[in-house]
Amino acid sequence: MEYSLSFHKALPFSPFSHRRRFLIRKSQLVVARAGPSHCDFSSSPLNTPLEPNSSAGRFLSAVLLNQRHFFNHAVSDELKQLSNDRNAAFDRMLLSSASDEAALHRRIAQLKEHECQTAVEDVMYMLIFYKFSEIRVPLVPKLSRCIYNGRLEIWPPKDWELESIHSIEVLEMVREHISTVIGLRANSSVTDSWSTTQIQRQHLGRVYVASILYGYFLKSASLRHRLELCLRLALHDLRLSNRNSLQLPEMCSYGLNNLVFGRVDNRQSVSLGQGLSRQEQQEKLKCYVMGFDPETLQRCAKLKSNEAVNLIEKHSCALFGNGLLETDEVILTSFSSLKRLVLEAIAFGSFLWDTEEYVNTVYKLKEN
């Protein structure tokens, strides 16, 4: 589905264009002053495993460092510019299709598309980083900086902050996932959390990537669950008497967006819920997910864009070390550090889902 840019009004004034080079230079100076330190989250405000390769990514990192309150506006401007640049190159290719320069413009369009894809992946990464910064959780830096004397330790754990982004039902499934992949129970003692275990770097990388995908899946499934519950309540109400029911025209005027995103006020929720059994109203997300047929399960779990696929691969390789994911190196670590990595990965997947949805409304992503 194509999205129209007409729904996203351009800012009357963009404060970034004339300061862009200065901000990038300034951010580079800030980063340059930071000395190397083992797993030191405070060494740089943008201590991410993956460094932006595009001018758009470097610009947004500079805005985050120096003008954080303008970040969302800067992202919107960058996405619109990338979309316009890509569309302009494509239009020139179409116009020259019958000319002697057709091959040249086709090649230019291909290069521009590749350039824009790299840039939009950087934009998505900075958006995800911004979401982490909003809950005051730094991304774990390159693991090579956190491993010394063969031991991996990540401090502080930030468990509460990373769990706070989830609803109670999602958090229940998150804790079950943690128990499954690292063997740490939800009610484990402090002693259990800080006990040590050995794990292959290759296996740890697989757990991290799988947890990103699980976070992405949980976000998709929980929103689908909420939507279906709202629609079920609304359809039930339509069967009631005219005095109590929400008629179809009223549903349409109320707006399907409110049903999709669950923005139903308390007064209406009470009306919609009348007559439904308690079990229907309180169906747990876990039971809902377990009832998925294979097609629905795949639909919720599948990454929607190529950009999301690339971003997970690049972030994971940057975190664990490109090429080191295939080694059988054994790492000594604590269950607390493993939990920190898994919780971060799940949050990354959840934020990736949100970011992908937003970016796709401005810059059409490539379908996976």
Rank of each mutant, 00 (worst) to 15 (best):
K9H: 14
K9Y: 13
P12E: 08
F13G: 05
F16Q: 00
F22C: 06
S44Y: 05
S44I: 09
P45V: 05
L50V: 03
P52W: 01
G57R: 04
R58T: 14
Q81N: 03
A102K: 05
T118Y: 00
V120N: 02
E121Y: 04
Y130W: 07
F132V: 09
F132C: 05
S133E: 10
P138R: 00
L139F: 12
P141V: 12
E153C: 11
P156F: 07
E163I: 15
S164D: 07
V174D: 06
E176F: 05
H177E: 14
I182P: 07
L184H: 01
N187Q: 15
D192T: 15
Q198R: 00
I199D: 02
Q200T: 13
L204F: 15
G205F: 00
A210Y: 04
F217M: 10
R226Q: 08
L229C: 05
L233Q: 09
S241G: 09
R243L: 15
L246H: 02
N258A: 03
S271T: 15
R278T: 15
L285F: 11
V289Y: 00
D293Y: 02
L303D: 04
K314Y: 08
H315E: 12
F320E: 09
N322H: 12
G323P: 01
E329C: 08
T333F: 12
F335G: 03
F335Y: 15
A347Q: 06
V362E: 05
